[in-house]
């Protein structure tokens, strides 16, 4: 009467239908072909002398050694680190201040929030062009009329060009970071402040001992995303200075782009890209680790 079906005596877990594999595997393969393979090829090229076409041979670590000796590349790293450091600190400090302001007992809160977030919507390239005009034409002519010496020349043409780029980056970068800090501030239960008020806490103590620890996770998000983003800085430099004057504002990304595509340093810039990857990875991981630890301590 009974149909007996031969089965393995022990089969663990429930079998996953084939359809589910079809929902992941094809796009996974495409991702592998267009993302992972280029990445691996990049690593591979970094050990060759390929110029982008023609024949090649292995050169070992020569490209990496060359990078450290090449003043353009070392300068790009110096510039990028300096830029990322200043941009991260300033953007986060100012964004936190704006967020605290927006979280205060103000009127038109939603309207102001929308205004402060507006720059996030705009492409950095065009914002870069607009600021290039402001620095190049508007401010100098204003400076000349007012006889303000420091403003009468185009900052983007001087050795301080990076400050111009930094200002534009802050203007745009504030939007996102402010939004995140505001979300953090609004997640704090007001009863905590009421309890603190009863304990006689002054505003500065309130911020340092209560608010800041409570929004620490938001600080982590912002810091990690900021550093990662600013180490990649590209659009605004292309718009404002093209890396100049000289190569003073050439970031790592700009260097990879200009020398890798237009120059003949395909293999060297591949090595540069690999180093950039390692830098970004290391900094992100260290940040996550340190900041999470500190959050635990505070939490």
């Amino acid at each position: 009467m009974q149909e007996t079906i031969k089965r393995k005596p022990k089969r663990k877990g429930k079998k996953i239908p084939f359809a589910y594999y079809m929902m992941v595997v094809p796009i996974g393969i495409l991702f592998f072909i267009f993302h992972t393979i280029p990445f691996l090829r990049g690593v591979f090229y970094s050990f060759t002398d390929w110029s982008g076409y023609g024949t090649w041979k292995f050169v070992g670590l020569k490209n990496y050694l060359y990078m450290f000796g090449n003043s353009n590349i070392t300068h790009a790293y110096w510039f990028t680190f300096k830029f990322a450091l200043f941009a991260t600190i300033l953007v986060n400090a100012i964004a936190l201040a704006i967020a605290v302001g927006l979280n205060g007992k103000i009127k038109y809160q939603n309207f102001l929030k929308a205004i402060y977030f507006l720059p996030y919507m705009l492409g950095s390239l065009i914002v870069g062009f607009v600021f290039k005009f402001i620095f190049g034409n508007l401010l100098p002519s204003l400076g000349q009329t007012l006889h303000w010496g420091f403003m009468s020349s185009n900052i983007l043409g001087t050795t301080h060009a990076w400050i111009g780029i930094l200002i534009m980056t802050i203007w745009q970068g504030l939007a996102f970071n402010t939004l995140i800090y505001l979300a953090g501030l609004q997640s704090v239960d007001p009863e905590i402040y009421e309890a603190a008020a009863l304990d006689g806490v002054n505003p500065w103590q309130k911020f340092m001992r209560l608010t800041f620890p409570l929004i620490a996770p938001f600080f982590t998000i912002n810091l990690v995303l900021s550093v990662k983003g600013y180490l990649m800085v590209f659009d605004q430099i292309m718009a404002m200075t093209n890396g100049g004057p000289g190569n003073s504002t050439t970031s790592i990304s700009v260097e990879i782009y200009t020398q890798g595509f237009q120059g003949s340093q395909f293999a060297i810039q591949s090595a540069n890209a690999v180093v950039l990857f390692i830098v970004v990875l290391t900094i992100s991981l260290i940040q996550l680790r340190v900041l999470n630890k500190r959050e635990e301590r505070l939490g």
């Binding site: 991702f31 993302h35 992972t36 393979i37 280029p38 990445f39 090829r41 990049g42 090229y45 990662k228 990649m232 590209f234 790592i252 990304s253 990879i256 782009y257 890798g260 595509f261 395909f266 810039q269 591949s270 890209a273 690999v274 950039l276 990857f277 970004v280 990875l281 992100s284």
Partner: peptide, 12 residues
């Protein structure tokens, strides 16, 4: 793969 920025893979 989130840790691999586009700038890193763009040449190849």
């Amino acid at each position: 793969a989130m840790f691999i920025p586009f700038n890193v893979i763009m040449l190849p």
